[in-house]
């Protein structure tokens, strides 16, 4: 299986991949806590970008409301843990199921009534927004005052099964999740299902004429994308230990999730990961660089978003397909950028 998986990667690509992986595995030994927290953020975005990419990049269905699935996962996992002491890994299954069900419902609504493209995207925003309002008023999970996970364990006491531990542990968890989804996506893209998704993305009517039940396959793409996003939500909840509806379900979160994929290359395997590696450190660096200004009393709230917006403009103008297809050629890995 692994052999087949590696076979299609050119030798030089395998070398780069191996070196990168070794560097990432060893990274926590050499970097300080701040750099590690940035790397955690990188993989947080890489993972979520990949999940979003399944729906948009593979099946061609635009979602601007992925914060919904993220939040449903985060709250489900956290609530089951706080109220019933359920393990976060089981909470992940529950959260994934809840998000997949929500995704199926929204997808069914949109696809049944032939709401496509931008209109479907608006529908996804609407659902994320009124779920935010629901959670703002749902006191069982803290309402707008926030929902908090008890901080136990602490440094040194890494408990992987309970997802309680140091940032280093979470770094490896996010890294593993990102690699896991990368392998999953690669398997999907070379499967019957993956080809059907690509056909739907390219031309729905032609796909249907070739016998593809487009409704069913689109729903499945939404469900899978939603479930994976929800897994990320649970990880986030246990890493962050606090959840506020206004932040969890916000449109900003939905947009942040897809920026990496757009910068890196929508529909490509590595795009969301590359995009996260470019955007997150740059955004953090900007914050650090502008700190002196803030000390002088010049407020620059939202400057990161402005910067991300500029990045998108640059990409759309100069490399519409994203950085990865371009990088792939520059690295001499030609032979079908995927």
């Amino acid at each position: 299986m692994i052999k087949i998986w590696l076979a299609e990667i050119p030798p030089r690509g395998r070398l780069y991949l191996g070196l990168l992986l070794a560097a990432l595995l060893a990274a926590p030994l050499f970097i300080d806590g701040y750099a590690l927290s940035v790397l955690v953020l990188v993989f947080y975005f890489a993972y979520l970008g990949q999940a979003w990419n399944i729906m948009m990049g593979f099946a061609g269905q635009l979602s601007l409301g992925h914060a919904l699935y993220f939040g449903l996962g985060a709250y489900t996992g956290a609530a089951l843990y706080v109220h019933f002491g359920l393990s976060p890994w089981l909470g992940m299954l529950a959260g994934g199921a809840v998000a997949a069900a929500a995704g199926a419902a929204i997808g069914a609504l949109g696809f049944r009534f032939k709401i496509g493209g931008v209109y479907f995207a608006i529908l996804t925003i609407a659902f994320a927004e009124f779920t935010r309002i629901l959670f703002d008023h749902w006191l069982w999970v803290g309402g707008s005052g926030g929902f908090f996970l008890p901080v136990t364990g602490g440094r040194g006491g890494n408990d992987l099964l309970g997802l309680r531990g140091s940032p280093t542990m979470f770094y490896y968890v996010w890294l593993a999740a990102t690699i896991g989804v990368l392998i999953l996506c690669r398997a999907l893209l070379s499967s019957r299902l993956g080809y059907f998704w690509l056909a739907i993305r390219e031309d729905q009517e032609a796909a249907q004429a070739l016998g593809i039940n487009t409704f069913r396959y689109k729903i499945f793409a939404v469900m899978l994308s939603a479930a994976l996003t929800a897994f990320g939500g649970v990880l986030y909840a246990f890493y962050n230990n606090n959840l506020f509806p206004s932040a969890i379900f916000s449109i900003t979160r939905s947009i942040d999730m897809l920026l990496g994929a757009i910068i890196g290359g929508v529909g490509t395997l590595m795009g969301p990961i590359i995009g996260a590696f470019i955007l997150t450190p740059l955004g953090e660096a900007l914050t650090v660089l502008l700190e002196p200004l803030r000390d002088l009393g010049i407020k620059l709230d939202g400057i990161k978003q402005v910067f991300y917006g500029l990045c998108v403009v640059v990409i759309v103008v100069f490399q519409r397909r994203g950085v990865w297809p371009w990088l792939w050629r520059k690295l001499g890995l030609d032979g079908g950028a995927k």
Binding site: L198, E202, A206, Q208, A209, L210, N213
Partner: peptide, 24 residues
């Protein structure tokens, strides 16, 4: 029947205005 069901029944069609999956 939906187009995919017609296809499953054994009828395939081409489009006058061609519809290739352009990026594939």
């Amino acid at each position: 029947m939906r187009p995919d069901q017609v296809c499953a029944a054994g009828i395939a069609r081409t489009f006058q205005i061609v519809r290739p999956f352009g990026e594939l």
